[in-house]
């Protein structure tokens, strides 16, 4: 970032001489310190998960939900400036409702993302606004099956089979790359998601975290976006922690072997 301080980064919608929009890059920085969010596109649906960092023990456990619903069949999770995330979701809801009142049919996920991409991009075009300080992972099921998208402050919006953002994204991404998306089911992915979030939390271990997982599947939730049941969440978290211990033991074993 050699060009910092040359004045091209003081206003949104301004290109630097080498063609960058610094304010968009800075917005991305806001995301990179947020709790890790991931999304998995499975054979039969979508799983979203987020690591909620607990900043105070006075916070009420299980409340302050981070995963939100845009329409019955579409869910979102995001990392970064959380109030911006709410703004993004509210816009998504408006788009979904407007579409439905026009066409009397639920909006398809690709179409929604197209519209939201345009909306987010608009916030990079004017110096009277700032770009969104969130990266959002949006998942849903429509007539064409499951879809997973990730959208960035620049407005860039791509489809994914596995998506991760926030502080632990690198760890999460390398874990997501190991999955077989052709065969994995939401039921399996719930556990995997818990494990990935647990691993991604390693980088931030001084603080506690709370796990939040939601899913969308024709079989499990009749195509609706819902939080996973309490018992399943507890099971997933337990699985993640046990796996973690096993891995550690293995590593120790390896070390012993080496010595």
């Amino acid at each position: 970032m050699t060009s910092i301080g040359t004045g091209y980064d003081l206003s949104n919608s301004v290109f630097s001489p080498d063609g960058r929009n610094f304010q968009v890059e800075y917005a991305m920085k806001a995301v990179e310190n947020g709790g890790t969010s991931i999304g998995i596109k499975c054979k039969d649906g979508i799983v979203l998960a987020v690591e909620k960092i607990i900043n105070s023990k006075l916070l009420v456990p299980g409340k302050n939900k981070r995963i939100q619903t845009i329409d019955k069949h579409i869910g979102v999770v995001y990392s970064g400036l959380l109030p911006d995330g709410r703004h993004f979701v509210n816009r998504g809801r408006d788009e979904a409702q407007t579409f439905k009142s026009f066409y009397k049919t639920p909006i398809s996920v690709p179409h929604l993302m197209d519209r939201l991409g345009i909306y987010v991009q608009n916030y990079t075009c004017y110096n009277s606004v700032r770009p969104f300080g969130v990266v959002s992972i949006v998942g849903g099921i429509d007539d064409d099956g499951p879809h997973l998208y990730m959208i960035e402050p620049s407005g860039a919006c791509w489809g994914y089979t596995g998506a991760a953002t926030g502080k632990g994204r690198q760890t999460a991404k390398s874990e997501l790359e190991k999955l077989d998306y052709e065969t994995i089911t939401v039921k399996e992915a719930v556990k995997t998601a818990a494990k990935i979030i647990h691993q991604a939390h390693e980088d931030n271990k001084d603080k506690d975290y709370e796990l939040e997982i939601s899913w969308i599947s024709l079989e499990e939730t009749k195509g609706r976006h819902e939080f996973i049941p309490e018992d399943l969440l507890a099971e997933a978290r337990k699985f993640a922690e046990e796996e973690d211990e096993e891995d550690e033991e293995e590593e120790e074993d390896d070390e012993e072997m080496e010595s």
Partner: peptide, 17 residues
């Protein structure tokens, strides 16, 4: 019917903890 479905989504689904 459409109005009621919209009501249901707003009241039962949005930000429901």
């Amino acid at each position: 019917e459409r109005i009621l479905h919209e009501l249901e989504i707003e009241q039962e689904i949005y930000d429901s903890d």
